[in-house]
Nucleic acid binder design. Structure first.
Lengths: 362, 362
DNA sequence: TATTGGTTCTGAACCGTTACCGTCAGGCCA
DNA sequence: TGGCCTGACGGTAACGGTTCAGAACCAATA
């Protein structure tokens, strides 16, 4: 029944007539006492039901918790739905596992600003994954006196960082579409701030977005298309708070309703792109003949449908974050890791139809 | 830089000329001191870089860690690959989240019997998910003086439990196949013990399997088919250590090589069944006309391909486990939760072809 | 005036362990 | 015989908080 804690290291020591130190050593440093005594200690422990040194007390004394905290501002369960987040989690878990460290998922209620849970987590360090840069939980983590690694976040002074070059990555997509001939495009992006705005995005909101990744990708698109002679102010960008295929569908619908003339929809995630493809099919728009659609991430599902996208090594990101954090003691280590991305040419991108083709068929 | 811990509650108190109690109250019981003093405390804390009460020390004193431990004997990352395990994890995470509890994934190296990590986890309770009944980690968890909930495990005296009736569930499949007319069947199952046996399974090994779920499902099949006049000793059961579609493929191949005459392959998981379907296709066996294939779990992918299977509420299992654990203080609570399962008739099951049809076509 | 009650703060005990250093006995060597 | 070393164990002091029973003070009530 494990009712109440019956024995402590001290009571065990008293029972045996030895010091607490000796009992402690029996568990932690077998070489520090005679095998015979150790045997007696362990045997008595079993008899009294002593479960071994209390992990919390040990942590207090040794100043090691044996666990890494993970902060995701989304509902914890979000991480289990989104393939990219999942792969990141897996990579991080692998790194923790091989270092014998636990992985402590910090519970966060995105509505209430529940900073307390960050302060309550007994961990040796934090990994922060893709939270808005003005998130109070992030601030709470940074205020804790433990090493931290941020991922898909803006740089923070003195904090290790893992990520990709989002600007360069999305530029690969943009350049490809430009070279195919696309000039009239639309964009679907994930949420840009903690407030919900399921609609078009003003230039101002684009620039002041609090999600680093989204802000940077939009900036990359703006820069590249502007350089190609497109007036970015005319490009419609549709935002969705929830990250799901359904969001991609409705966002694509909103975009196509507003401007049926777009020849390409660029999405800042594969999930959104998959939704957009569903919406295209509903409208009898053939992809890529009638409409080009691109994604971002390179998730398995995207590969299956042949989505044109940018693949990023999400699992490696998780691994890298873990290694960076757990190797924090190493001197002169690299403080920032930027992973490579790769353009994946799929079957969802093609040159736009000419005006003639639009009317008379290909 | 968060270099070294500069301040403690005591040093803050000294700086302010108040007692430690007062500083503690400033954080935990704002009503216990004047607003003015509280403001001074918090301000001084900020000035000295005091990050608030140390979570580990607090845990030691309050005997609450604010986290739930999760033990999966598989590699931690396994949980992120297997859809069923994932859904369970999500459900558990949801329950933790709504209770404001962290979720601490205990790192376990399945090779080395690394019990230490179980003892090191500072948690208020454990959830144990689908580990072999002779697993030393399970024993280690049970030796800890904290509440525990086991899931998909055999009953343990005094320990809460969540699960389904595996025997009844697989019997639904068995009866369906029997009523369709299948008598010559084969079975694909997941690993039955900690040792690797990627081959046929003896009756003895079936009965002494250490994974409760697999053992029970096999027993259910044996009972039901025996009652239908099938000599169970003649039924080939193929085991695979790794749980993957590739395993399902190779296991199905092994089975079909040994007995090309089977009319149905019953799998104890959807993943294995999906692999079996791939192998069937490779052999130009039409499903279900030439071969019936069934799964177990009811994962999304199974629904997509129309697999005949038994759906179990995996996410709810996770939620239930969390609630049971976190509501442990409630008196007279239910100590065991058994969730319902449902037979899903898909398009992968049909009556067996007659001998005549086998030779002359349908 | 004495009592009551409420607010604000303090003192001391306690949570269970490990780090650090000291002690002591016995053996070895010169 | 004396000095030194080694193995085995003990004592003390943290580690950084929370809690509970009161003390001190002041205003209000009987």
């Amino acid at each position: 029944m494990h009712a109440r804690r019956p024995a402590t290291l001290a009571s065990l020591a008293a029972e045996l007539g030895v010091s607490r130190t000796t009992v402690s050593n029996a568990y932690n440093r077998p070489d520090q006492l005679s095998p015979e005594l150790r045997r007696r200690v362990l045997e008595t422990a079993k008899r009294l039901g002593y479960p071994g040194p209390d992990p919390v007390a040990r942590s207090l004394r040794t100043r090691k918790a044996g666990a890494v905290g993970l902060l995701l501002t989304e509902n914890l369960s979000y991480a289990f739905r989104d393939p990219a987040a999942l792969a990141f989690l897996e990579g991080l878990a692998l790194a923790c596992e091989s270092a014998g460290q636990g992985l402590h998922l910090v519970p966060v209620n995105p509505q209430r600003e529940d900073i307390a849970n960050v302060h309550r987590a007994g961990v040796d360090g934090f990994v922060v994954y893709s939270v808005p840069d003005d998130d109070p939980h992030l601030a709470a983590v940074l205020s804790r006196p433990v090493p931290t690694v941020v991922c898909d976040q803006p740089r923070v002074e003195g904090v290790d960082r893992v990520g990709i070059d989002d600007h360069a990555a999305i530029t690969k997509i943009a350049k490809r579409l430009i070279s195919l001939g696309h000039r009239r495009i639309g964009v679907l992006c994930m949420r840009l701030g903690r407030d919900r705005n399921d609609s078009f995005v003003s230039l101002d909101r684009q620039r002041s977005a609090h999600f680093h990744v989204q802000r940077t990708r939009l900036a990359g698109l703006a820069d590249t298309f502007t350089a190609a002679g497109v007036n970015w102010a005319d490009v419609r960008v549709v935002e969705r708070f929830d990250h799901s295929q359904a969001s991609g569908e409705s966002a694509a619908a909103q975009l196509l309703d507003a401007d049926p003339g777009v020849t390409a929809i660029i999405c800042t995630s594969d999930i959104l792109a998959l939704g957009a493809m569903t919406e295209a099919k509903r409208r009898n728009l053939r992809v890529p003949q009638d409409l080009t659609i691109t994604g971002f991430d390179g998730i398995t599902e995207a590969r299956r449908v042949g989505l044109t996208t940018v693949r990023q090594p999400v699992l490696e990101k998780g691994k890298a974050a873990g290694k960076l954090l757990l190797g924090a003691a190493e001197a002169n280590r690299q403080r920032e890791i930027t992973l490579e991305t790769e353009l994946v040419d799929g079957t969802t991108s093609a040159p736009p139809r000419t005006a003639e083709e639009r009317w008379f068929g290909p």
